[in-house]
Nucleic acid binder design. Sequence first.
RNA 1: GCCGAUGUGGUGGAAUGGCAGACACGCUCGACUCAAAAUCGAGUACUUCACGGUGUGCGGGUUCAAGUCCCGCCAUCGGCACCA
Length: 770
Amino acid sequence: MKRYDFKAVESKWQKYWDEHGTFKASDDFSKKKFYSLVEFPYPSGHGMHVGHIKAYSGLEVVSRKRRMEGYNVLFPIGFDAYGLPTENTAIKDNIHPRIVTDRNIEKFTNQLKTVGFSFDWSRVVDTTEESYYKWTQWIFLKMFENGLVFRDKTSVNYCPSCKVVLSNEDSQGGKCDVCHSDIIQKTKEVWYLRITEYADKLLQGLEEVDYLPNVRLQQENWIGKSTGAFVNFKIKEQDEKLRIYTTRPDTLYGVTFMVIAPEHPMIQKYRDSISNIDALDAYKTECAKKSEFERTQLVKDKTGVKIEGLTAINPITNKEIPIYISDYVMMGYGTGAIMAVPAHDTRDYDFAKKFGIDIIEVIKGGDITKEAYTGEGELVNSGELNGISNKKDAIAKMLEVLDKLGCGEKGVQFKMKDWAFNRQRYWGEPGTDGESPLAKNDSFVNCKCPKCNKDARRETDTMPQWAGSSWYFLRYCDPKNDNEFASQEALKYWMPVDWYNGGMEHVTRHMIYSRFWHKFLYDLGLVPTSEPYAKRTAQGLILGPDGEKMSKSRGNVIDPNDVVEEYGADVLRLYVLFMGDYEKAAPWSESSIKGCKRFADKVWGLQDIVTDEEGYSDKLVSAFHKTIKKVTEDIEAMKFNTAIAAMMSLINEIYNVGSITKGELGAFAIMLYPFAPHVAEEMYSSVFGKVLSEQEWITYDEALCKDDTIEIVVQVNGKLKAKLNIAVDADKDSVIAQAMADEKVKEATDGKNIVKQIYVPNKLVNIVAK
RNA sequence: GCCGAUGUGGUGGAAUGGCAGACACGCUCGACUCAAAAUCGAGUACUUCACGGUGUGCGGGUUCAAGUCCCGCCAUCGGCACCA
């Protein structure tokens, strides 16, 4: 047999698939469908990363299997091509970003094809093409018309290095997502999408989808629903009420002070009647200078200033309560004001200690001279609530009281904020400070209103990169449509996405955003399902050989091109799936990949030992059925590593037997096909003269997965003593008799009382002897 | 601080409560070779000459039987973070 020339074979089949449109999704909407989606890449100039290969290989395997199972499979790919690096290259090389983008897309396309992914290349979507982005704009306008877009002058996350406003999601941890600079707060007028309107729907929708538990949890945390109460405190000196939000209305009797955010409007409103307004202004200025990072670093040390001239009245005790400003209360959450209960809240406790404020215990169970007690317990010092020890009951009772007094009610809050939507970029790169470079282009900026034809000023900011990716899965259903973003017919057939795989890093941004857009379109009756993705999984990172995250600065990046060049696409695909649990991070190993190379060579070598017989041989029939079952099931569970391991075991067994029937070789090729399609196709076509891509998935017979005899374990007191070969499903008495007759067992039980004999059919016997 | 995940040989990793270490890498020895690579064969948790004993982060527990279940720690990673 000639040596396996993977280069020739791989390019031969890639060409064949391409020319025959093997992976094109059919427009025959009567067939059963399967829509598998992977996150489309940002086409950077560096080309693909091995992480992309792993991310796509999972559903690649599933998609190839589904086609063989008779599904009409939509497995599309596209490019999320707006972005800052492209802009930088364009400026550096003095060319239009369009050219850079086209160049990079071409590079990615070639690389993806070289790996042999079974994408439907006839449906490629590019978010920067007018035929695509006009629909992105169209959806934005629909949102505008429906009151989900607004402009507001508020404090925003601003990256002083990129000179751009960022959403909360893009500035997690107080760092810019692009350049990792510290984010500062800046007052600016920006566009917002009212995503908070959908907070509850986004949370409830999680009930009806099948997401990885971790994915679901992160979304829940991000949405951050909390239930509690709004309470209105009268202001003694003014005809005014201070409204606060609390999750613990049951502790209202323990309030000893109030805290409002430094930016709280009440300060401006009554500045003339506040005697220490200068001190308050100075504190506010100081806070504004702090970065998000500094603000959270100083958690231990509480600062603040007492407001002289405004005093709150506790609505149920009528006691006077001092009001402070402090930066541990944020204007952006709740009402920007809190009632402080130092006995039962750690932050309030720290503040009270520092400012010498009373601490009143209202819940028994801790020692409030030492620290705040945040647990549950019996209520004390709380009037009509005294004696209640269940938190739920206490809260319910307090809500009743507040309702009677007309000074408070049940309330719900979300951590999620509205989505700051505009970016001061052209393709991404900022120009002048805080404005897109387009703002300097008068002929672009000055225009006529399309409705009333009066002079108008054109918006020069762009949408964030997240806009294009918020609906791309819909466009794939009908990518060439020029009249609609996609036809209702196509959407009804293909949606929802049956299985979506991607990275964990997109769970709180891309996924939340796209679910929001989709739910909006659903409410307009423009998409058929309330959720876009029926199932979501996530692959683990591929780490560098040193076990660290791959990065250019560490110099531990593996280029998939090099791997394809040296070992071939099949081996690369096998290895990224074999290296470990698909959902967990695993380090790349230069030597481990050789195991996959050897496996591929052994597969090729099967042709040397193939016989003319059809069907299975007696020696291998159960091994084959077992392996087919294992591979079939493991693919569905994304346990690709053990599926490949099972095929490796089988091939070792085949070589031990020394020959393989034609039928067995065919079965092996089918199993292997989703993982290593090139070698499988070549081998199959040379033995059968048929194209493997057109064959059906192989089935197994449960009855044939069993051997006639089976080895069972004999234990005495849980310790292994012997092994027995018995007939499958042998009866208990005969197996135990055989076990007791064993020399080792006799020795171990000699002179002891047999207390119990346990028989687990086809597994083991355990004899308990004392 | 809160939430979540993970912890198994020299390495990556397998194990519906039922033989711990599948599969693979690496290593050792052997075959082939002038030699090397490739390939093939044997071995490879620790300990013991051996019989045996000990082993899944640590300490308890449940069970005939625990890597797996329960309780309490420790460590690492990820997410959120003055969210009232």
